[in-house]
């Protein structure tokens, strides 16, 4: 008899997206604080240990429903409350990270003697100055469809570039 899993599927997706981001940040040499996302839609803060800059506030999403790429972009339906919080003016730059998970849950991660694998990958997107007119369609009151460029792969190299932009305030 198998015990029921202690966390919901949503929790497990969220924890994997946290693990992915923390792994990338660790590889790139940054610190990560886990925040209370109920407060203002920010899940993590990545910084160097200094109080202010460089730093990024991260809103995390994990999904098995990313659409196949079209013209170099994949589409994602973002909850509208998160969308608004990512667009608002802030001192610390905010980015969205979307973890693209396999449809089959048992393939989300695996561990063997040689490697730890977390599938598939995450993309980042800054919605600062995002024009709502660019949104193809507002599917309903609660979510907004956004296009994420496939080139925005979230890895250690892209995180270092983003932190450099955060230092200068150019993101």
């Amino acid at each position: 008899m198998t015990d029921a899993l202690p966390t919901s599927i949503g929790d497990r997706k969220r924890r994997l997206s946290v693990a992915y981001t923390m792994a990338v940040a660790a590889q790139a040499g940054y610190r990560v604080d886990i925040l209370d996302s109920d407060r203002d839609g920010v899940d993590l803060r990545i910084d160097t240990g200094k109080a202010f800059r460089p730093a990024l506030d991260i809103s995390l999403q994990a999904t098995t429903l990313l659409e196949p790429p079209k013209a170099g972009c994949t589409a994602y339906s973002l909850p509208s409350c998160r969308y608004e919080r990512l667009r608002m003016k802030t001192q610390t730059p905010r980015i969205l990270i979307v973890l693209d998970l396999p449809k089959q849950e048992d393939r989300w991660s695996s561990v063997n003697f040689n490697e730890l694998v977390l599938r598939h990958r995450a993309y980042w997107l800054s919605l600062k100055d995002h024009d709502p007119k660019d949104i193809e369609e507002i599917s309903n009151m609660h979510s907004v469809r956004i296009d994420i460029p496939m080139r925005n792969l979230f890895n250690a190299a892209s995180l270092q570039r983003l932190m450099a932009l955060s230092r200068t305030g150019d993101i």
Binding site: V42, M88, T90, Q91
Partner: peptide, 9 residues
């Protein structure tokens, strides 16, 4: 004051 993260800052 009109910043989304003003209290945190």
């Amino acid at each position: 004051r009109e910043l989304g993260d003003y209290p945190q800052v």
